[in-house]
Every structure is written in C-alpha cells, then in structure tokens.
C-alpha cells in the first residue's frame, strides 16, 4: 500500500482550476519526482497534499487517512513536512531558532533531533546563532530541509530544492536528499526543474502537462522515453 496517494485531484487557488486530474502515489521509503514544463501544476500538486490550495474534486490519502479537508497544522501533525521553493526560512530568526520552529508541533524535547540535524549539516552548527537571512542560498536550503527533519516526518515534500543554486550546491542538495532518504527511510516527493538529474536519482517519476498526468514510470524508464526527452529534457 502506498503511503501517499493523490486520487484525481482538481483544484487551484480559487479561480480557474490549475489541476484537472492529477493522480500519483508515493510508497514508503520511495523518492518520487514530479517534472514537467512551466505551468504544468507541479508545485500546485504538491501544495494540494499540504492543504494550501482549494481542492474541488478528488482525494488526498495519507497512510489510509483522508487529508483532503484538514488544516495545514493538522497535516503537519500527521507527519508530512513541506519545504517551499522560495522564502523557506525565517530571516530574522537564528539558524537554531529556525530549526526549533520545525519542531513546533512536537510536545517533547526536540534536542536529539537538533543534534541529528547538526550532524547531517555540520555547517548549520557553525552558523547556529546567525540570523538565517544572512546565509547563502545553499545554506538556507539546508536550514529549510533541516527544519523539516526536526519533526521526523514520514513524508517530505520538496519544491524545487535546487532552484537558483550554484551547480556545486545542486549536487550537494541531491546527495543530501538521497542521504536522508537512505538513512532515515524517509519518503520524498519532490518537484524538480532539473529534470534529467532528478529522474536519474529518483525511484519513480511523474510527468505533468497542463495540470494532468502525462507519463509515469521509473526514473530510468522516463529518461529512456524518446518522447519525454524531446519534450522536456532538451534532446
């Protein structure tokens, strides 16, 4: 049984529907990537999981529970974390306070998780009392992912984690994502602009076009598909 399932989702931001029939699943421990051209509704599909758009039709299932009508903070408590593409740190809070905010819905002492995030990102430990707004783009992305890990979620949603980063950071982020997937057995659903690279390391992928599923296959399977290569991967 899959951990997360989107079943024929229709919806958007109140106006016209952006998603008109998106279905996808993520199994426990899997890395799934959503790719597609601009305006395909990739980020919107991700926000649908997190209760951030108006869902007009369709259902979001998580671990056998219907999440469709839940509030964002209720969804967080179920063990899903979402890392938005931009503005994903609290700039005036220190790195450590940002991480603490990730554990906001926990009622227990989160210091073991904090220690683990620092272990994963030693750089964040060095900068722990620095305001997050003063960090570089790559470091902010670490803060954002680290903050999500504070909750020890079962599912992590990453919206274009490499957007706007220098190439050396891009590889680093991909490695980090794979690392936390392996080490923690965490399921990951991510949207990526960098389609070739993302499909290369994902277990499975979905191609969305105009708010609908177009293709789905294993990562290598999609990479091998001539039609997709012609359409999105730049030949």
């Amino acid at each position: 049984m899959s951990l997360l399932a989107l079943d024929d989702i229709h919806g958007g931001y109140g106006g016209a529907d952006i998603l008109s029939g998106v279905s996808l699943t993520v199994a426990a421990g899997e890395i799934v990537v959503i790719v597609g051209p601009n305006g395909a509704g990739k980020s919107t599909a991700m926000k649908a999981v997190f209760g951030l758009i108006t869902i007009r039709r369709g259902t979001v299932w998580f671990a056998g529970e219907n999440l469709t009508r839940l509030r964002t903070d209720q969804i967080v408590r179920r063990g899903i974390c979402y890392v938005p593409q931009v503005d994903n740190v609290f700039p005036s809070l220190t790195v450590e306070e940002n991480l603490e905010m990730g554990a906001y819905v926990r009622n227990d002492d989160a210091s073991p998780q904090l220690a683990r995030v620092y272990e994963l990102f030693p750089r964040l430990f060095e900068r722990r009392s620095q305001a997050a707004g003063t960090l570089s783009g790559g470091e902010r992305q670490m803060v954002a992912i680290g903050r999500a890990l504070m909750l020890e979620p079962r599912l992590l949603l990453l919206d274009e984690p490499t957007a706007g980063l220098a190439p050396r950071f891009i590889d680093q982020i991909f490695e980090t994502v794979r690392g936390i997937n392996r080490a923690l057995g965490l399921s990951i659903l991510m949207v990526e602009q960098n389609a070739r690279k993302a499909l290369g390391f994902a277990d499975r992928g979905y191609v969305l076009v105009l708010g609908r599923n177009r293709f789905e296959d294993t990562g290598p399977g999609l990479l091998a598909n001539r039609e997709i290569a012609d359409m999105f991967l730049g030949g």
Partner: peptide, 12 residues
C-alpha cells in the same frame, strides 16, 4: 512576523 505562510507550513 517574518513569514506568515511559512509559519503555517511548519504547523504554527
């Protein structure tokens, strides 16, 4: 005060 959308996202 920093970022109200992100505050919601982390479950505040």
């Amino acid at each position: 005060a920093d970022n109200i959308d992100l505050a919601r996202i982390v479950g505040i």
